[in-house]
Design a binder for these strands. Structure first.
Length: 276
DNA sequence: ATGGCCGCCCTAGGCGGA
């Protein structure tokens, strides 16, 4: 099992998890909070309206401050926290007007800014001429690039389901996935540019270097996800400015066990600790 | 690589996920 709750009040454990319906999996969210000792939880694909969010379940688990950006049936993101949050206007990355960005300041308003993102998956064909979903994904990523470039040096924590596995060892087979949406060169180059121009650090690779295989998502279609272990690292925690020295890379964790829970999400939780 | 699965919706096949 993974590290459990910690006692240092200045240390915040911040997690991201694509939950694939928060109403269906409110119980798993409670289990995850207990298993991880998480203080701030960023959720994607909540698949509900704001008022349908399972506030009581998260509050029962101690996350009393909740910011929801929902929509009916699809997409939707939320941030739930043990410490106070101040909601801020999130950057406008989505030209389709979908609920894919939630943004807060952690604490009383002077704390770092935290972004919870759900980047469009992009459909099947990695060709903007024939696949509008892929064009939408690239547009979303390009808006991210422009935004984070302008904010290089700011105190930022950027989390979420980025839907891109940017490095060779972020997929089970680099060669096999070069033409598969999530690992095509146009996408991986874009993510590298966002990180470089925004002076953002990828906490997973701060912790593990470039050579270790890491995954946070395994397809539902696999008859046995563990047997072939054909995963991809789609879920990310990036730091900017002072947050790059505030993060404790050795705390970085992927809760792989969660993929074997009863009726699991196809993504598992990812977290890291921050000393603020 | 594929599609084997999964969850949503004015309940049933279509859409989206990645």
């Amino acid at each position: 099992m993974s590290p459990t709750s910690h006692t240092d009040p200045s240390r915040l454990r911040i997690a991201t998890w694509n939950i694939n319906s928060v109403r269906l999996r409110a119980g798993l969210v409670e289990t995850m909070i207990a298993a991880s000792g998480v203080d701030v939880l960023c959720l994607q694909e909540i698949k509900c309206r704001d008022g349908e969010f399972p506030f009581a379940a998260l509050q029962a688990a101690g996350l009393n401050h909740i910011h929801v950006r929902g929509q009916k049936g699809w997409h939707g993101v939320a941030i739930a926290s043990r410490v106070p949050l101040v909601a801020v206007d999130g950057p406008d990355f989505c030209r389709a007007g979908e609920a894919r960005v939630a943004a807060v300041r952690i604490g009383d308003g002077a704390g770092p800014e935290l972004h919870c993102l759900y980047v469009p998956a992009g459909g099947d064909e990695p060709d903007t001429e024939i696949n509008p979903k892929f064009a939408h994904k690239l547009d979303f990523l390009d808006r991210m690039r422009t935004h984070y470039r302008a904010r290089a040096g700011d105190s930022l924590i950027v989390t979420g389901d980025i839907n891109v596995a940017p490095e060779e060892h972020d997929v089970w087979s680099h060669k096999a996935l070069l033409k598969v949406v999530s690992h095509t060169p146009v996408e991986t180059d874009m993510v590298r540019a966002i990180l470089a121009e925004g002076a953002l650090s990828d906490v997973a690779r701060m912790a593990h270097g470039p050579q270790i295989k890491l995954s946070s998502w395994w397809s539902y279609r696999s008859p046995d996800w563990q047997k072939n272990d054909r995963g991809r690292r789609l879920d990310h925690i990036w730091t900017g400015g002072a947050m790059t020295s505030a993060v404790q890379p050795e705390s970085f964790s992927i809760l792989r066990d969660a993929r074997s829970w009863d009726r699991p999400s196809d993504h598992v939780p990812v977290w890291a600790d921050f000393v603020l």
